[in-house]
Simulated scan of single mutants.
Amino acid sequence: MSDMFVEKFRGLVPLYLEEPWQEADGITVADLDAVFSELQITVPLALREFLHALGNCEELMEAYYYFWDPEELELEDGYLLFLEDKDENYTWGMLADQADVPDPIVWRRNNATGEWINEEGTFSEFVFDMLDWVFKEVLTDQD
């Protein structure tokens, strides 16, 4: 793994949780490789590094929306699915045939209609924007 995004993803722990990143927040590369091999899926670099950095950090993995655990990732409709909202109205994914793209574009599916909409941002952009929105907008509105 080239660690293109790992440090930026690790930096989300002190940014939003006000504590240092710890190794236990992530999932080892070996464990990820084993899961992806068993599932027979190819996962883009940005998603792999996100899970490596934060896959066990429940506070971020389940911050408003729910990132799927590595063993829950699945291919459906030509997309690699990785996230859903709490009411399961929407699911997010990336085109499965772009698994070799380091940081592919994210798409959102309306689960009622099956329609996919381009989120017009890469996975890393989507993650940083979503968590910024959750921690600065949603959670402050609940105070």
Score class of each variant (00 low, 15 high):
residue 14 P to F: 04
residue 94 M to E: 06
residue 21 W to G: 05
residue 15 L to N: 07
residue 24 A to I: 11
residue 38 E to C: 15
residue 120 E to C: 14
residue 62 E to T: 15
residue 43 V to C: 04
residue 68 W to F: 13
residue 115 E to G: 07
residue 70 P to V: 07
residue 79 Y to V: 00
residue 92 W to H: 03
residue 130 M to P: 08
residue 86 K to A: 14
residue 7 E to W: 11
residue 79 Y to F: 08
residue 5 F to G: 02
residue 46 A to Q: 05
residue 69 D to A: 14
residue 42 T to V: 14
residue 95 L to E: 09
residue 65 Y to N: 09
residue 79 Y to T: 02
residue 115 E to H: 06
residue 26 G to H: 02
residue 100 D to W: 10
residue 126 F to N: 02
residue 47 L to P: 01
residue 96 A to P: 04
residue 114 G to S: 04
residue 139 L to M: 12
residue 85 D to A: 00
residue 4 M to Q: 15
residue 32 L to C: 04
residue 61 M to I: 02
residue 126 F to A: 05
residue 76 E to P: 11
residue 4 M to S: 14
residue 107 W to H: 08
residue 107 W to C: 11
residue 43 V to R: 02
residue 112 A to N: 13
residue 138 V to F: 09
residue 137 E to W: 03
residue 47 L to S: 03
residue 77 D to G: 07
residue 91 T to D: 07
residue 71 E to C: 05
residue 130 M to H: 13
residue 127 V to I: 15
residue 19 E to N: 11
residue 120 E to I: 10
residue 77 D to V: 09
residue 109 R to I: 01
residue 137 E to T: 06
residue 106 V to Q: 01
residue 53 A to P: 02
residue 109 R to V: 00
residue 136 K to C: 10
residue 138 V to N: 08
residue 124 S to M: 09
residue 38 E to K: 15
residue 55 G to E: 03
residue 32 L to D: 00
residue 20 P to M: 08
residue 41 I to V: 12
residue 59 E to H: 04
residue 119 E to N: 08
residue 40 Q to K: 15
residue 67 F to G: 03
residue 30 A to T: 14
residue 113 T to Y: 10
residue 38 E to A: 15
residue 140 T to P: 05
residue 35 V to R: 12
residue 92 W to Q: 04
residue 13 V to D: 03
residue 136 K to R: 13
residue 133 W to V: 07
residue 93 G to C: 01
residue 81 L to T: 03
residue 54 L to W: 00
residue 73 L to N: 00
residue 142 Q to R: 13
residue 8 K to L: 13
residue 36 F to Q: 05
residue 105 I to A: 09
